[in-house]
Design a protein around this nucleic acid. Sequence first.
DNA 1: CTAGCTGCAAATATTTTGCATCGGA
DNA 2: TCCGATGCAAAATATTTGCAGCTAG
Lengths: 158, 158
Amino acid sequence: MCPHEQIENNKDLKARIEAFKALCRNRALRVTEQRLEIFRTLAQSKAHPSAEAVFAAVRKKMPNISLDTVYRTLSSMEEAGVVFRVGLSTKARFDADLTPHYHFVCINCGEVYDIFPQEGAPALLVPQDINRFGEVKNVNLQFRGICNRCRAAAGKKK
Amino acid sequence: MCPHEQIENNKDLKARIEAFKALCRNRALRVTEQRLEIFRTLAQSKAHPSAEAVFAAVRKKMPNISLDTVYRTLSSMEEAGVVFRVGLSTKARFDADLTPHYHFVCINCGEVYDIFPQEGAPALLVPQDINRFGEVKNVNLQFRGICNRCRAAAGKKK
DNA sequence: CTAGCTGCAAATATTTTGCATCGGA
DNA sequence: TCCGATGCAAAATATTTGCAGCTAG
């Protein structure tokens, strides 16, 4: 990384951390040292680190932090929309239907619904330079949110 | 499900099972009772079942099947391209960059690479009726394959 | 026959939780 | 002060592996 880029990123980083603090306050999440350090670590990384990897990195600056705090923090950050979880959480699910289609995945109950492209709709747009990373074998497109059933259940409780 | 649809599916199912057998032979994978039953179960389900759920269903017909056979079979089927794994396997990875972008995920080493849409490229096409399933919070688009590094490593070994 | 597959059991890996204590607002 | 967050330890969940016997090709 060139020095100039580094400076750019540092400027950017400060702003992102301020935005993070503001968002925490909005959501009544406390701005703790641990959360700041976890966010800082993630914001500086381009490696899409796992919880374990974040833990290892944060530990260098905060030797007493625990792995479960990292897990809890990443989850609450995800919920707050501050970080993005690549892939799905935990349990794998399978589909034997190989015709091109996508999925709606409920982030509350984990249910998976098929979404078939509409009749006559243009196919999924694949970036032209996609093969510069490697050989693509398949495509996974998920729309994640709260399914109707969970929304209805949440509505009743209130 | 209406009776007519059921019949359609059964016809379709037979053909799919034959295709599955042929594909197994092509790949030097043995066509065992367990594999057939696992594939049949998955092909008949629209529930995107987990390994555990497949196990429970298959067990009703083959009480002696073991969970690890289900895991092994699902993995080999995925590798053969017969079934699709929704989400990623095992370890979760995180990204603090919320600008719209996608990921190339290596199915061999698990590495995640960012893919930013090209300048001026049309945005990702979202199905119009997407909200009929629920409220979409975010979109996860992955291109899965073998990354260049793994391809190079595999090439050397040969 | 025999390489690949299965079942069993045990090991790993990953993530979550209860509880006492601590610390931000 | 007070309630949410943390650290520790232990549990729960999900997946993988070694090995001996079984079976499809």
